[in-house]
Amino acid sequence: MMNNAPGSPRPGPAPIPGQSPDPDTPAVHAENLTVVRGPRTVLRNLGFTVPRGQITGLLGPSGCGKSTLMRALVGTQAKVTGTLDVLGRPAGHPTLRTRIGYVTQAPSVYDDLTVRQNLDYFAAILDPGRPAADRRDADVTRAIADVDLTTHADALAGNLSGGQRNRVSLAVALLGSPELLVLDEPTVGLDPVLRRDLWNLFHDIATGRGATLLVSSHVMDEAERCHRLLLMRDGELLADDTPDVLRTRTGATTVEEAFLRLVDEAKAAARTKETTR
């Protein structure tokens, strides 16, 4: 039932839920990834791999380059050097545009359209043409239900609360069941109940629909809900591991503590490097 990529070379048996539909290529593979914005180098020589069918958390303080990395992945960031492959293609490849769902930090929806009208439009861009109208309708209804906005489907997006607008933006990214979801701080400004519901949805999407999720956050307690973590600071990668391994390695009880210890280690290493110079 799951989304085997159309045109994917692997005919084989139906993938087991929770397993990647195409295990040969990782969802994301980066090597020496560097991004320059104006005079600043925002990302410095990143190298990492994001496995398919899992939730990978991208964590770090605000301003550390999380959003830039996400923009590079979806192909909207200029001045990207190094290797960055997404779903087996170089990031920004035209065929990737239908296979990735992307949610920016600020809700990017039309305030002067209703929730359903917003989704109808984006669905028509992803899957155009009159013959697809029924499929689009079902898809839109499902996406609205996924983010729990069915009762608000006919409300103007501009009249919704900040958290609700965020969820409209998320619903747009869920349209068409993309293989990779890139979510930039999707739970900011949401109450605990909604946050739990959304994380349940994310797990559902990863295990039930076999999609890969890359979720950024600067709230460390969300890290515990991810399968893997990329910890970032100042445009560099501090760690790339599972929450469990991170905690054990640093002898910490929480991911937050582990992150702080890694930052201290990095600072100490930088100091010794400077003094030995």
Binding site: M1, P6, P128, A138, S177
Partner: peptide
Amino acid sequence: MTTTATRPATPPRALSASRTTATAARV
């Protein structure tokens, strides 16, 4: 979980009539 349509992997063209009219209708 409901079965859903996968996004078609057709490469986008510079100009597509249905996407243009969808955009005009949205505006």
